[in-house]
Design a protein around this nucleic acid. Sequence first.
DNA 1: ATAGGGTTAG
Length: 621
Amino acid sequence: MQRIGSRTNLLPNSRSALGFQHGLVGLIFFSRTHSKASPKDGCRMTLVNQRMAKSNNTHLDMKMNVEDALVDSFRRMLRTRPLPSLVAFTQLLGKLVKSKHYSLVVSLYNQMGMRGIRPDDYTLNVVLNCFCRLNQMPSSLCVVGNFIKFGLEPDVVTLNTLMMGFFLVGKVVEAEECFNKMIKGGCKPDVVTYNTLLNGNCKVGHSVAAIQLLKKMEKEENFKPDIFSYSIVIDGLCKEGLVDHALDLFLKMTRKGVVPDVVSYTSLIHGVCMIGELEEAMRLFNGMVDRNISPDVQTFSVLVDALCKEGMVVKAQDMMEVMIQRGVKPNVITYNSLIDGHCLRGEIDEARKVFDMMIDNGCESTVFSYSILINGYGKKKMISEALSLYEEMTSKGLVPDVVTYSSLIAGLCKVGRTQSAQDLLHKMQAVGQPPNSQTYAILLDGLCKNGELEEAKLLFHDMEEKKLPLNIVIYNTLIGGMCKAGNLAAAKDHFCKLPSKGLQCNVWTYNIMIDGFLCGGLVGEALNLRREMEEKGCTPDECTYNIMIRGFIHNDDISRALQFKDEMVANGFSVDASTYELFMDLVSMGKLDSSLRAVCHLHPSSALYGMGCMPECVVLP
DNA sequence: ATAGGGTTAG
């Protein structure tokens, strides 16, 4: 299966063709331009939360009871004489699979074996599914071996499940071997087989190849794509940013008479949110409600998260209100999004309140919840709070993962405790959570920001020795550190060697180098790089312009700074907070012509946004 | 008994 085509040929007008109406939830959404962040935004803990309390408690108790009851009746069944039928045992295991208790199923299955119960093909398929879901492929292969051992034939379900398992651990070649074995062994593939192939391809980022397979399925009489097939590909396209293709496919699907469901809608809404089109997302949402397709907890979570990521935490809470009114209970993931939404705005106390409220409501926190909050505290330099949360989660039996540790490392660096951060990195090895490239990047950045360039270089060599993938982010960080330390020659050396390492510099790399040159007074070198960007087709972003404007002001070249400011505004960008401040300084020093009326639009992503002072438009005198 | 959607670190 090869990937054809790329992210070109987007069809910009396909969305309006959907023609969804404004409706039900129009009231809680207004377009981004109308919503301004104010310090008050998000400080509202409402009735919503109290109402959630009751519903969640009962929900959780029910859930616990169901699982406990299943395990209880399993134990009773094992003691019953004569033994209940194998079908009864298998059905029970199947129920536990539905609630994702895969390791529990494996352990119960082993107990059955110890009591001398022989499995049949159904039971083995259930257990195989569990090992696959647990990413334990050697054990999965053992289960396949057990078919032979018990004189049973692996069937199409066995091969479908095994193929899915290989895809889950990224072993595409082995997965396709499963498919080939199926064909050779006379076992007929079915729609599930093809859907598994579609999903495998989508999950490794080959959704365009999946489209080709989907087209073949449409032509074949026996494998007509169903709602699963379309949902898989729609989701894959969205995850690759090909949202317009996804919307087209959605339309095509409905024209073929395949009725969309909550999953296909949720994927599409998520995709539309990811490209920042929240208004379009709300249109889709209203459209699904109009079609009597009920949004569920995942649909609402997508919207809550998207609103939070745009800084609209109050709107996110309104969305939660709508959710509860519709009888859909928020779960830990919905809460996590809201907690992170507050963290993103720097409202760490509000984040903590939501966290505590979640617990009060009987919704159990996960490693995700703790990592989000630890990261939030780290960003606010409240390291003792972060560390005590770490203690709290471990005492609860939650196992901190690579993200938890990375967030702690970032927090420690932020308060200058780089030695503790380094110690923690080593601890990760010891506790079986080895740091990844991103963890190293965080520590590397922390060391550089604290002016410990020599330590940073040692860490970089450590990465090389451990053969960790060195991506452009790592080099950007190191190069940035060298620039900051005034070691421009070394920075330039690394910069020039990037292509020989198979790495392509990106806009960040250029920004860092240009900033370094300008700070070092090497104006000519900076301008050369700006030209090189143009030649290599690397489009300057808002940062590039802000860096250049500030750099030229620092080098007393106000006319060049203004020239870049005009170019920036012409390209639809705005000055950030610190550039704005520099301009103001120049005005107050009388260095900037007061006849100049420079309009600097401030974008929501600018540094001012999180500070609760986001004017629509700033007019320089 | 097998296939699809939501949350965290650079």
